[in-house]
Amino acid sequence: MEPVIEISNLSFSYPDGKQALEGINLLVQPGEKIALVGANGAGKSTLLYHLNGIFTGSGMIRVNQLELNKNNLPRVRAMVGLVFQNPDDQLFSPTVYEDVAYGPTYQGLDPHTVREKVALALKAVHMEDYAQRNPYHLSSGEKKKIAIATVLSMQPQILAFDEPTAGLDPRARRELIDLLLELQQTMIIATHDMNMVEQLTPRTILLNHGKIVADGPSLDILRNDRLLMTNGLI
C-alpha cells in the first residue's frame, strides 16, 4: 500500500534562527494511529503544522502522493485536518453549526452539500443536538468534540491532533479517547498523555530537539525507562 504521508529530510528553523526540526524522515501508512511524544519544545507542534503547510521547511512532504507546495496547499489542507490544543482558537462563530460549516463553505460547496457534511460531522462526534448552541458556553470536552467536527466536515483522510486530552476532566478524556478509537482516519497525535498512547496508538515517535530519536511500537518505547528519562518524559 502507498504511504499516506511521506516526509523526507525535513528541516525547519524559526525566523529567529532557532532550529525546530532537523532531518525528519517519516512514512505513515493509511489508517495508522501514531503518537508524537517529546518534551515541550521538542518540535511536536511544529511537525504537525508542516503537514498542513502552516510552516514550510526544507525537505519534502507528500500527502496522498501529492507533493506539498504553494500551488496545492489548499488541496492538502482539505486532506489533513488539524485539531488545535485550545478549541477556543478554532471556534469563532455564533453557532456550532456555522463553525462546523466553515470548511465546506470556504470550499464553495452548495448549501445543500454543506448541510449534509455538517450533519455527518456532528453525527460522527455524537453532537447532533448541539448544532444551534453557542460554542462559547460549552464544556471543554464538548468544545473539543466540536473542534474535531469542524475538520471532519471537510472529510480529511488524516487527522492531526495537538495535545487533545490536555485540560479535560477524566470523563471527558475517556469519552474523547473512545471517540478517537471509533474514527477510522489516519491519526497523528502530539501528546504528553502516556496512558492514552498505550490505549490508542500502536506506534510512537519520540522527538527531542527537533530530531526523531525513536520510532517504533508504543509499548516498547513506553517501557524503555532510560529512553524516556534521557528525553525528558519521566
Binding site: 469563532f92 462563530s93 455564533p94 453557532t95 453557542n134 462559547y136 458556553h137
Partner: peptide
Amino acid sequence: LAFIFAAR
C-alpha cells in the same frame, strides 16, 4: 456583535 450577542 453577532458572536457577542449569541454568547453574552
